[in-house]
């Protein structure tokens, strides 16, 4: 039985530390999916996260055509996996969320030796619509 909720819970917070790259799947207005890795999903509060926008073009185009999309995040401690359904709200190119993410992206880039190419363009603010647990303690839920 899959567990569903619509709030980010305490046990999920390590998944938003930027340790394991999340995977995001968007869809165009005519229903063609696009799936790719992103650098970071940033926790804002239990109802909101921000996606790091660096390189993605098709993902960004899709978010503007169809604001509903999914991201899968993994806890770097338990390796539990969650699929979060999101709704794109707005893009931020400055302010506290952008500044916090910029620091994290710089840290991720430094760890991967990609300081010159990993530049944050914007923080994509999203509402959490629902959360589905996919894997717990190494077992499919």
């Amino acid at each position: 039985m899959k567990t569903m909720s619509n709030k980010i819970t305490q046990d999920m917070l390590p998944a938003f530390q930027g340790v394991i790259p999340p995977t995001v799947a968007t869809a165009s207005a005519n229903g063609v999916p696009n799936v790719t890795y992103i650098s970071h999903v940033h926790y804002i509060d239990e109802d909101h996260v921000a996606i790091s926008r660096q390189f993605f073009n098709k993902t960004w185009q899709n978010m503007n055509e169809n604001p509903f999309f999914a991201v899968v995040v993994m806890c770097p401690q338990t390796y539990n996996l969650w699929k979060i359904s999101l709704r794109f709200l707005e893009e931020k190119t400055d302010g506290p969320v952008f500044d916090d993410m910029d620091i994290i992206i710089e840290a991720i880039a430094s760890m991967q030796g990609m300081q010159d190419t990993f530049k944050l363009k914007s923080a994509v603010i999203c509402k959490v619509e629902s959360i589905e647990t996919l894997v717990v303690n190494g077992k499919i839920v």
Partner: peptide, 16 residues
């Protein structure tokens, strides 16, 4: 490896 697809729901499904 990951796969994603989409049905009538506006949100894609995504899994390993």
């Amino acid at each position: 490896i990951w796969t994603a697809n989409k049905g009538k729901n506006p949100i894609c499904d995504l899994t390993r």
